[in-house]
Amino acid sequence: MKTKSNLYRKEKYFGYLFILPPVVGFLLFTLYPALYSVYGSFTDWNGLGQMNFIGLDNFKDILTDDFFYKSMFNTLFLMIGIPIGLVISLLLALGLNRKIPGTTTFRVIYYVPVISSLAAISILWQWAYNGDYGLVNQFLDLFGIKGPNWLANTATVKPALIIMTIWKGLGYSMLLYLAALQSVSRSYYEAAELDGASGFKMFRHITWPMVKPVTFFLVVTNIIGGSQIFTEINIMTPTGGPEFSSATIVFYIWQKAFDNLQMGYASAMAVILGLFIFIITLVQFKMNERSSFDVD
């Protein structure tokens, strides 16, 4: 340490100063509330005043709470959209990576939903799914199909939401895939071509492994995001859908906390959700480690 120059030492302090705001932000707006809700999960806190320690009672109640399981199931069900969305966006990226006219226009079109306000999009789709006047059913009508009232039907409400979330996420995944595709060196393909590899083989053995880090990143972030899906649900099906069939876990937590004065119980569910996400992500990282390799 003593041999380090004065300048180095000074720089070090400035470094700390620069990282201070995000650290303070994290402590204040993430860690503190998180720890507080862990504490809250052991109490009967109503969100207003009263806060009595009740041990594990909340967690015991959750075990027998049908709606907890139902909303958890719904949340997982909605994640069906993740692989579908990834496949479509990779295909789109492959398409837009070619030198065809109008690619910039298409990239913009696919990216617009990503930058639009989620609330506005939800209202838009709510209308599109309207049974009588909705765009979706009007379109189906052209083919003589009588569409259902999408959001009011237990059988169609989840697929309807899945279609919407895929549409919404497409642009973002596509953009990341596009960047990954463009960073793949041409020389791999040239070498493969010389060896007489087919297009599919090139995709399987060059493109797919090369974009794998992006796939991994997208899967992880999509699952985290998917576990927390709320805004769309709250706007499109404000009561949690027919027979609670579109209520997600965060929707249920929110309902308990803000409608029913059970902040403690809601905190307990939030803690469980947090652990759930943490474990899933950990497992994914382990799996990725096992199957990853270096190209160099």
Binding site: T154, E243, F244, L261, Q262
Partner: peptide, 16 residues
């Protein structure tokens, strides 16, 4: 009542 959760449940499940 202290909260309306019990009452809301009636309407959540009543659709069938």
């Amino acid at each position: 009542t202290y909260n309306a959760e019990w009452y809301d449940l009636f309407f959540t499940d009543v659709q069938p």
